[in-house]
């Protein structure tokens, strides 16, 4: 059902856990559909210096969360904003069709965390 890469990220999730004092964070999904993803980032020199995720969800939800953290660590914010849900699925050698819409939320979670960082930064500069 799942590719080897999905199973690898599912069994050995990268960058999983909570983050102390994140610079930006987000939560997407809801319990009704069965997937919730939380992403927290630290930013330095406009680059993602550290990233952590927590996920409530199926194998695809865990694997996409883990994969995106690996894909964007060290990348600039603009590069990270350019990553799509589809690109995450491709990096995992694909997902079963039924999972494409429900469990493929990692890019959305990442983008929201970056937006949150930008909001906070803006708030600081203005404040």
């Amino acid at each position: 059902m799942y590719s080897d890469k999905v199973m690898d990220h599912f069994t050995n999730p990268r960058n999983m856990g909570k983050m102390e004092n994140p610079h930006g964070e987000s939560q997407v999904g809801n319990p009704t559909c069965g997937d919730i993803m939380k992403i927290a980032i630290k930013v330095e020199d406009n680059r993602i210096k550290d990233i952590k995720f927590q996920t409530f969800g199926c194998g695809a939800a865990v694997a996409t969360s883990s994969m995106i953290t690996e894909m964007v660590k060290g990348k600039t914010l603009d590069e990270a904003m350019g990553i799509s849900n589809k690109a995450v699925a491709e990096a995992l050698d694909g997902l079963p069709p039924v999972k494409m819409h429900c469990s493929n939320l990692a890019a959305e979670a990442l983008h929201k965390a970056i937006e949150d960082y930008k909001q906070r930064k803006k708030g600081k500069e203005e404040g």
Partner: peptide, 23 residues
């Protein structure tokens, strides 16, 4: 936690079960 994730982990340990999760 979510059921499919439990099933996948059990399967990796050789145990076959089922769940009522949407997945």
């Amino acid at each position: 936690i979510e059921g499919e994730a439990i099933l996948l982990n059990l399967d990796l340990k050789g145990i076959a079960a089922s769940s009522g999760s949407a997945c």
